[in-house]
Simulated scan of single mutants.
Amino acid sequence: MVKRVAVILSGCGVYDGTEIHEASAVLVHLSRAGAKVQMFAPNADQMHTVNHCEGKPTEEKRNILQESARIARGAVTDLAKLDVAAFDAAIIPGGFGVAKNLSDWAVKGKEYTIQPDVEKLIKAFHKAGKPLGMCCISPVLAAKALPGCELTVGQDKECEKWPYAGTASVMKEMGCKHVNKNVGEAHVDVKNKLVTTCAFMCNAPYHEVFDGVGAMVKEVLKLA
């Protein structure tokens, strides 16, 4: 039976949107597994636009849905139109867009909130007993929407040194169980049907990130 998976994007580019390599890895692994995929993104302005050569914000304004269409080859739908009943699972790749466009984690840290449509879909998939896959920084969405869940953003010590410093510690402070995993591994929270992997939260080679995302996708499809 073909599994139907919703993939949630947050723009295009690691510093202000979806991490492109993570999104590509998700799509390749889903395609190889024969899953039917539909991509979604909020139809709203990005928090800001970053010049990826310099790593600095510009004056330019960009739309999350339009930017996500770059990854989706045009085939992306407004997140507000996502019908949970039409899917068996949902996966959210990482990138700073998760922390800036799908939530305000990048600005508020522990006091962050999730974009309403994103929080709604996470809770709806969870209530329906349908699995969720998240990689890199996107597990922070689950930490807020599914209190007490188990997740991984990699190794505690490495996460303290990398660009998302302190993430694992904050997840623990919020009451979540953080599980140390290597980049090629995924953690399965059986109770919540939540599958997470660290991806670029660790300073790892591209192929190892690709393999870790594959482990996450495999476990999500098992649960679907």
Rank of each mutant, 00 (worst) to 15 (best):
V2S: 15
S10G: 04
D16A: 01
D16M: 01
G17N: 07
G17I: 07
A23R: 02
A25E: 07
H29C: 00
L30S: 04
S31C: 14
A33S: 13
K36G: 14
K36P: 01
V37Q: 02
Q38N: 12
A41Y: 05
P42D: 01
P42C: 10
D45L: 13
M47D: 13
H48C: 14
T49M: 12
H52P: 09
K56T: 14
P57R: 00
P57M: 07
T58A: 05
N63K: 10
L65K: 01
I71R: 05
I71M: 02
A72P: 00
A72Q: 02
R73W: 06
G74I: 09
V76D: 00
D78P: 03
L79G: 00
A86I: 06
A86S: 15
F87P: 03
D88K: 04
A89P: 08
V98N: 01
A99Y: 13
K100I: 01
N101W: 09
N101V: 10
W105M: 01
W105C: 00
E111T: 09
E111C: 02
Y112F: 15
T113M: 09
I114G: 00
P116V: 02
P116H: 01
K120G: 05
L121I: 14
L121V: 14
K123M: 05
A124K: 09
A124T: 10
F125T: 07
H126A: 13
A128F: 00
A128C: 05
K130N: 06
L132N: 06
L141C: 09
L141H: 03
A143M: 11
A143L: 05
P147T: 04
G148F: 11
E150P: 07
T152V: 01
Q155E: 14
Q155N: 12
C159R: 15
P163D: 10
S169G: 15
V170Q: 03
M171P: 03
K177W: 05
V179D: 04
N180G: 02
H187F: 12
V190T: 14
K193G: 03
F200I: 07
N203W: 15
A204D: 11
P205C: 12
F210G: 03
G214W: 03
L221N: 11
